[in-house]
Design a protein around this nucleic acid. Sequence first.
DNA 1: CGTAGTTTTGAGAGGCGTCAAGGAGCGTGG
DNA 2: CCACGCTCCTTGACGCCTCTCAAAACTACG
Lengths: 221, 221
Amino acid sequence: MGLSSNEMDKLDTVISSRRRVKRGASLFTNGEKFTSLYAVRSGFFKTCVTTADGRDQVTGFQMTGEIIGMDGIVNDHHSCDAVALEDAEVCVLPFDMLEQLSREFSTLQHHVHKIMSREIVRDHGVMLLLGSMRAEERLAAFLLNLVQRLHARGFSQSELILRMTREEIGSYLGMKLETVSRTFSKFMDEGIIDVKQRYVHIKDTSGLERIVNPPSAECGR
Amino acid sequence: MGLSSNEMDKLDTVISSRRRVKRGASLFTNGEKFTSLYAVRSGFFKTCVTTADGRDQVTGFQMTGEIIGMDGIVNDHHSCDAVALEDAEVCVLPFDMLEQLSREFSTLQHHVHKIMSREIVRDHGVMLLLGSMRAEERLAAFLLNLVQRLHARGFSQSELILRMTREEIGSYLGMKLETVSRTFSKFMDEGIIDVKQRYVHIKDTSGLERIVNPPSAECGR
DNA sequence: CGTAGTTTTGAGAGGCGTCAAGGAGCGTGG
DNA sequence: CCACGCTCCTTGACGCCTCTCAAAACTACG
């Protein structure tokens, strides 16, 4: 990311600490004091917010290389839970050290800003998904996003293992677990994917893309 | 916000430039080169993202004192449109200057981080709203949020003028304009609010709060 | 090998979208 | 000052998508 070796050395002092999180355990929880950002080294996380009356919403799934915890900066306390969906390890990035180093190295500073901006843009995409797509479109968009991120990490473009349950997928996509299951089955009937529990094989990527972006709407202009 | 007068002087050099935006005009649009953040001085904005097939989603409404444009940092180009809903004026904050000053003043640096974190937390709240609330709950939460922000700016706790159309409210809340209108009418029938076009009078704040947080769900524990 | 958690599938209900028509407010121009 | 047209809002009827409730099958794990 364009840092000199001197800068890299300094950066290493920030990320010296690591932490393991067992499957099902929390990296941090809502209300907890904010101290650090976390970079996922291995494993898979979900983040979720909860209302007073017990409803909760998965706000994201994070995999290797992604950063968790930026929700905590504004109020010095975390406003969501981060839960490991499989045994995981994270780099602990003490935020005060990160700010200090950011003042020394503009490259790092800009990188931090980009990471937060990326999260904002991602959130806006989810809002678009939740606000204006139907169940099939949401699930298709979700699968495409997941496989694309996995592919960027060297995994297959067409096969994946879901780390989350149907209920968690549903919570993220604003639908009930039964609807998630039914929609998976529908995609299978149409020959677009194979699903067997957590295993998914995408047989027709462009089929999924057509579902997300119905071509019909574009003909009109 | 805890800056010394020396710091304030420096900061003034950043916010020297202002810009007027007429009602209906764009502050920036999707794809436009990113250069600056904008602080709303007066007026009212919406931000919205658009899909390839023409659907769009309002991602937020911004009023005096709020910051727009953080979506542009990550890719050096804006990923949404910012449109003035009434004649408005903004302070232009050139982002490279902001980063430079942030390296000098840790107070400012932390402030910038907080602003971005606040946006992330807000977005998560909207995801919760879109993903797990029903139409009535969404609209009630929307009204409470709006009146609370207006009250913080010295306006009434119970009366407000909507700066946006039913369609824009609907786009933000993930529902159709007819549903927005119907839900307003329902709240009126129940005596919770008075609505006349863009004018809204909240007669029973706790009534709205009960709709957002149904007490029934909390009895169980 | 039993038990708990997860997933699938069905049937029925209801909330919200769609389509359509009418009405209110407001700026423009005669 | 009033008429006109435009945009926005309201309301009704109908249908569909998704939720709810329920039961059974499958998997994982102790």
